[in-house]
């Protein structure tokens, strides 16, 4: 792995002001993540995991501190530049899949490539390849509501991966799935990690965090622990 971190947060905070109420969703978060790490953000509901992930994914901006992604300070960038980063560097996977309801699996996966100006034929080729890779080669023309939860999440994974992003961000990716499909999805993440992807998984479930190589505990908007997962490390070292 290269020495320079893929991303670095310095004293990052996020404050919501609602009338007289002030809510600090993140407080002085410092964090470095390198290429090909497999990280879990774990903590109780409302602790600030999603907020942190959204900042990392350039969907949201911190109200304080610095965020450096691939050597670029992100805070100064305008909306278009952030959109550009989301399109090139980030692949999102959400708890509720967030598929485009009117578009079939293929078109859902093709969508991010539109914003890269990739021609239709090539988009189609890349998207069907990505769907094939997640085992949905036979479901290209199904609408989201014609797919099971597990299949929908696999479409979302294909869509996140199709643009070859630097980081895969998954916010409670198994939250809406039954336990056996959850296992399938996590197995898929494990494989992606082994293939060299950088993955951050947000979860409140220790069993999910168990899959990751590094587990970061978040409580009340602060990082309270940041540990390497012994079992994983050994498993990895053994490979």
């Amino acid at each position: 792995m290269s020495d320079a971190p893929l991303l670095e947060l310095r004293q990052v905070s996020k404050r919501y002001v609602m009338g007289d109420n002030i809510l600090d969703a993140l407080k002085d978060v410092n964090l470095k993540i390198a290429h090909n790490e497999y990280v879990a953000f774990i903590g109780p509901s409302g602790s600030g995991k999603s907020t942190l992930m959204n900042i990392v994914g350039c969907l949201d901006r911190p109200t304080g501190g610095e965020y450096i992604l691939n050597g670029t300070p992100v805070a100064q960038l305008d909306d278009n530049a952030l959109a550009h980063i989301r399109n090139r560097e980030i692949g999102f996977i959400f708890q509720n899949f967030n598929l485009l309801g009117r578009a079939n699996a293929l078109h859902n996966v093709m969508q991010p490539l539109i914003y890269r100006g990739i021609a239709l034929g090539e988009r189609r080729r890349l998207a069907s390849q990505a769907l094939q890779n997640v085992g949905l080669g036979e479901r290209l023309h199904h609408l989201p509501n014609q797919l099971s939860g597990g299949q929908r999440q696999r479409v979302a994974i294909a869509r996140a991966l199709v643009g070859k992003p630097s980081i895969l961000l998954a916010d409670e990716p198994t939250g809406n799935l039954d336990s056996s499909t959850s296992k399938d999805v996590m197995a898929m993440f494990d494989t992606l990690y082994r293939d060299g992807h950088t993955i951050i998984v947000v979860t409140h479930d220790p069993n999910i965090a168990e899959h990751c190589q590094r587990v970061i505990h978040i409580m009340d908007g602060r990082i309270v622990s940041d540990k390497l997962n012994g079992k994983r490390r050994e498993a990895r070292a053994g490979v």
Binding site: G57, L59, D79, N80, A83, H84, R86, N87, R88, F92, N98, L99, L100, G101, Q111, P112, I114, Y115, R116, R159, G163
Partner: peptide, 16 residues
């Protein structure tokens, strides 16, 4: 609105 949010998460710019 949610669809617009999804598109933005995928990298759609304002002008898109």
């Amino acid at each position: 609105t949610q669809e617009i949010g999804i598109l933005k998460s995928l990298g759609a710019r304002r002008r898109d």
